[in-house]
Structures are given as structure tokens and as C-alpha cells.
Amino acid sequence: MRVIGLISGTSADGIDSAIASIQGEGYDLEVSVIDGQTVPYPTDVREQILRVCAGEPISMAALAELDDDIARLFAQAAQALIERHGRVDLIASHGQTVFHRPPRSPRSPNFPLGYSLQLGRGELIAALTQCLTVSDFRQADIAAGGEGAPLVPPVDLALLSHPQHARCIQNIGGIGNVALLPPWDPSVHPQPPKVLGWDTGPGNSLLDLAVETFSEGRQTYDHNGTWAAQGVPCQDLVEKWLQHPYFQQLPPKSTGRELFGQDFWNDCLREATPLNLLPADILATLTEFTALSIAQSYRTFLPALPSEMLVCGGGSRNAYLINRLQVHLPEMTVQTTSDAGVPADLKEALAFAVLGYWHCQRFPGNLPSVTGASQAVPLGKLHKPI
């Protein structure tokens, strides 16, 4: 089956798309990546997404229009790959998350289920592309009492497990998340091992907000971490920010821009301003905060540190951040998933292509050990072209 996977992550910097040939059943998969790309959002659409994520009020009419705009852009991203490589059997679209509330949230203490909203409705993508489309991947896990996130660890298990040693797969998008993959050789042990995973906290979200602030909107991210690398981290601020209750919360857990977004960045800037730090110093401090939040999470919640970390997502291109991870986790070899044969820039889009493929097989796409759901369930809703 030829499948296109689509996603725009928490950074909302654009639509990642990947086309792949997928064969097999369950975790026994053969996945061949054909092509992929990232299509940036138009500036006005990205700005509106970020305003909604920051909690700015929006009318239902404007929300409906944004939903349609995102769906059209996702459809265009898929169509670009179809025009280059021919028709596909399925499109699997994660959409754009604009709100995520974990279950048992302080905001809803009397209602145990979580809530997560992804814009870019699958019905419209199916109509525009005339392709079967799967979307709304998080809802079934949430209905089963799960966090609805992270959803990629079962795909990591299928594509990135090593037969002899354990690995951590660390995605660093706007938010960071980890999957601990125990050693697994399916030919010897057909039953998959227990995978641990959770959202580690901020990834690029705070860094991107800081860069946009300091560049007055001329830049949206710190290319290769070059700007941050010129600064000196303020360890007092890092230690203070690491006291946030999220980092002490036991997994399973998930988070988003609602916690590590505009309000958190405003607090960071307010606390840094009296210290007369240069912009580079603040960026270095935020990078250190991100790296240490990941390292602290590993040391606190993993049963033991594995020998290897494979990084994916936009943070995999930030050499300074990768260096700080290696400094704080010297026991581990820090590389990218590209070194293991899965393109780091396309892995999240590829993961949703696999989740869409599993939907068609009615194969469960969540891991209760990761999301906290009461059971493993197939994910997504199927939309047929009109």
C-alpha cells in the first residue's frame, strides 16, 4: 500500500509530508520511504494558529475558516507528492493541534477524560484529493482514558527496535517526547515488549518564541543553534524552571503549548530581564533548560539509561542542543534516527502513514503503557472521497 502521512507539529512551522510503500501486518512491517518534504504555512495562517494555541479568543466562524484553510493546505501538500509520484491508496493526516488538555487536568478536576483538538478536517482532505483519508488519531485513545499522546512510540517499536540493546527515541518538535524501546528480536520473541514513553516537556517551542521576539519576527527559529551557542546559560534560571510541577509528574503524561507556550515564555523573559542577560544568553539558557529537562526525565523515570539515544524532529538539526544533550547524558551515544535508517525530518509524518495503514488493518495504534489508556485500540476515522 502506498500511503502519504501528514502532520504539523507543536511548532506550527509547516506541514511535514512523507510518501511511503508499506507492507506487512502489525509490527512486522516493511516500510520504504519514497519522498517527503516540509511545506511552510503562509505567514497569516501560522500567526493565527499560534494565537489560538496561546488562548486568544476566536469566534466559531473564524475557527471553522481556519479549520478549512488548514485542511486545504494539507490537501495541497499531499497533492504535490501525488503529482510527483502518482496516486496513493491512503492519506493519513494528523492535522494541526491547537489545544491539548491531558486527562485528570487541574482545569477539569471533575472530568477524568482528556481533550485534544486537531484542525484540518479529514473529510475535506478526502474530497479535495479524492483519496481515502484517515484523521482524528487521538480521539479513540482519549476515549479509552489515555492522554492521546504520544502516539508515535508503537511505530518506533516497529521501525527502530534493535535486537540486542535498548534505545531511547527522542522526538524534539515544539514539545519533546521519548520512547524507551527494549531490545527486541521478533523472530525470537514474537510478542512485543513493554514500551515506556511520555512527553518530556518543551522542545523547540520556547526557543522559537524567543527567537521571534528577539529578531522582531524576522526569524522563526535558531538555525543550527548558532545564536544560542554564542551565549552563556544562567544556571539559576534553569534550576528554577526545572521546579515546574510537570517535571515531577509521573508518566504517562503529555503536554503542549498550553503549558510550555506563550505564557511560559513571557514568565521566562520577565525573570531574565532584571539579570541583564543578552538575547544569546537567554537562548542558551532555554536550550540548557530543554536539554536538562530531557536528561532529568530520563534519570527520574527510566528504569535504567540505555546506551543510545536517537533524536528526530526539528531539534535534531540543532547542533548546539544535541551537544548539550550529549554533555548531560554522557552514558549515552546521541545520534539521529537518520543514522538508523529512518529520516529524522520525516519520521513523524512517516509514523502517521503507518498509523493510517494500521487503521485499515484494524490493528491497535496506541500503547496503553505509554498513553495510560485502559486498552489498545485502533486509531483514527476513515473518510471516503465524495
Results as ranks from 00 to 15, higher is better:
residue 55 G to E: 02
residue 74 F to S: 02
residue 62 A to V: 05
residue 74 F to N: 06
residue 62 A to P: 03
residue 64 A to P: 04
residue 83 E to N: 01
residue 64 A to F: 09
residue 80 A to E: 13
residue 55 G to A: 13
residue 72 R to K: 08
residue 61 A to F: 14
residue 70 I to A: 06
residue 71 A to W: 04
residue 77 A to S: 15
residue 83 E to W: 07
residue 75 A to L: 05
residue 76 Q to H: 10
residue 63 L to I: 06
residue 71 A to R: 10
residue 77 A to Y: 12
residue 64 A to I: 02
residue 71 A to I: 04
residue 73 L to Q: 14
residue 79 Q to V: 00
residue 65 E to S: 04
residue 56 E to M: 09
residue 77 A to T: 14
residue 55 G to R: 12
residue 79 Q to M: 09
residue 82 I to D: 07
residue 55 G to W: 02
residue 81 L to Y: 10
residue 62 A to Y: 04
residue 70 I to E: 10
residue 72 R to F: 00
residue 80 A to N: 12
residue 76 Q to G: 11
residue 73 L to I: 13
residue 61 A to N: 14
residue 69 D to A: 13
residue 58 I to Q: 09
residue 81 L to D: 06
residue 80 A to D: 14
residue 75 A to G: 04
residue 66 L to Y: 15
residue 67 D to N: 15
residue 70 I to K: 02
residue 65 E to I: 00
residue 54 A to W: 00
residue 84 R to M: 05
residue 77 A to G: 15
residue 58 I to D: 00
residue 63 L to P: 10
residue 63 L to V: 03
residue 84 R to F: 04
residue 59 S to I: 01
residue 83 E to I: 00
residue 80 A to M: 11
residue 81 L to A: 05
residue 76 Q to F: 01
residue 75 A to Q: 01
residue 67 D to E: 09
residue 80 A to Q: 15
residue 77 A to R: 08
residue 61 A to Y: 11
residue 60 M to H: 10
residue 76 Q to R: 11
residue 59 S to N: 06
residue 57 P to G: 07
residue 76 Q to C: 04
residue 70 I to Q: 05
residue 60 M to C: 12
residue 54 A to L: 01
residue 63 L to S: 01
residue 76 Q to K: 13
residue 58 I to N: 01
residue 78 A to L: 13
residue 65 E to R: 09
residue 77 A to N: 12
residue 68 D to S: 15
residue 72 R to L: 10
residue 80 A to K: 12
residue 60 M to G: 07
residue 84 R to Q: 07
residue 77 A to Q: 13
residue 78 A to G: 15
residue 78 A to D: 12
residue 77 A to I: 10
residue 54 A to G: 09
residue 59 S to R: 08
residue 59 S to P: 01
residue 79 Q to P: 00
residue 60 M to K: 02
residue 84 R to C: 07
residue 84 R to T: 03
residue 58 I to W: 03
residue 58 I to M: 12
residue 68 D to H: 13
residue 84 R to Y: 11
residue 68 D to M: 13
residue 80 A to G: 11
residue 59 S to L: 04
residue 76 Q to W: 06
residue 81 L to M: 02
residue 77 A to K: 14
residue 82 I to E: 09
residue 57 P to K: 08
residue 79 Q to R: 08
residue 58 I to R: 01
residue 75 A to F: 06
residue 82 I to N: 07
residue 62 A to S: 14
residue 54 A to K: 02
residue 61 A to W: 11
residue 61 A to P: 10
residue 78 A to P: 14
residue 74 F to R: 02
residue 80 A to L: 13
residue 65 E to Q: 09
residue 56 E to Y: 11
residue 64 A to L: 12
residue 74 F to G: 09
residue 69 D to V: 05
residue 83 E to F: 02
residue 81 L to W: 00
residue 66 L to I: 14
residue 62 A to N: 09
residue 64 A to M: 10
residue 72 R to N: 00
residue 76 Q to T: 09
residue 59 S to K: 04
residue 83 E to T: 01
residue 65 E to F: 00
residue 72 R to G: 00
residue 74 F to E: 03
residue 54 A to R: 05
residue 79 Q to D: 11
residue 58 I to V: 14
residue 78 A to Y: 13
residue 62 A to D: 14
residue 56 E to R: 12
residue 65 E to C: 08
residue 69 D to G: 06
residue 58 I to C: 05
residue 61 A to T: 15
residue 77 A to C: 11
residue 56 E to I: 01
residue 54 A to Q: 04
residue 66 L to G: 06
residue 82 I to V: 15
residue 56 E to G: 01
residue 67 D to Y: 09
residue 63 L to H: 12
residue 65 E to Y: 04
residue 60 M to I: 04
residue 57 P to V: 03
